[in-house]
């Protein structure tokens, strides 16, 4: 299956049973990437190129290692590849981020956060 190919190309933090995540957003970013690949939006080698350069840049900057640093690179690469493949624009992502920020700040706890 696709996931196994991905794991051969990119070196994901993992144990005997598969990938390891510390926080939900990491698993979400991972799952989005796997699903976009399965849908044929990009190949794993295209992904590995972009993700690899994020890792290289982070290493050069001296960013920390570990799951969080790893998935911050993953997230940055995901934002880049959806732009390169014209799936989403930077403007769309920025605008949506502010909508979520606003929605979270104006939602009473106990209510699901929704975009108006």
């Amino acid at each position: 299956m696709q996931l196994d190919q991905a794991l051969e190309i990119v070196d994901i933090p993992r144990d005997d049973e598969g990938p390891v995540f510390e926080e939900p957003w990491q698993a979400q970013a991972f799952a989005i990437t796997v699903k976009l690949n399965e849908a044929g939006q990009f190949t794993w080698s295209e992904w590995a190129d972009i993700f690899g350069s994020e890792i290289a840049a982070a290493t050069q900057r001296g960013d920390g290692v570990g799951n969080e640093a790893y998935y911050l690179c993953w997230l940055a690469a995901l934002e880049k590849i959806v732009g390169q493949k014209s799936l989403l624009t930077v403007e769309q992502l920025l605008a949506r981020k502010e909508e979520w920020r606003h929605a979270a700040a104006h939602t009473e706890h106990g209510q699901p956060i929704k975009l108006s």
Binding site: W25, I32, L78, V82, L88, L93, R96, K97, R101
Partner: peptide
């Protein structure tokens, strides 16, 4: 910030 970025990607996609 990371959660907002992922939620944005996810909801738009």
């Amino acid at each position: 910030e990371t959660v907002l970025r992922v939620k944005s990607l996810e909801s738009l996609l």
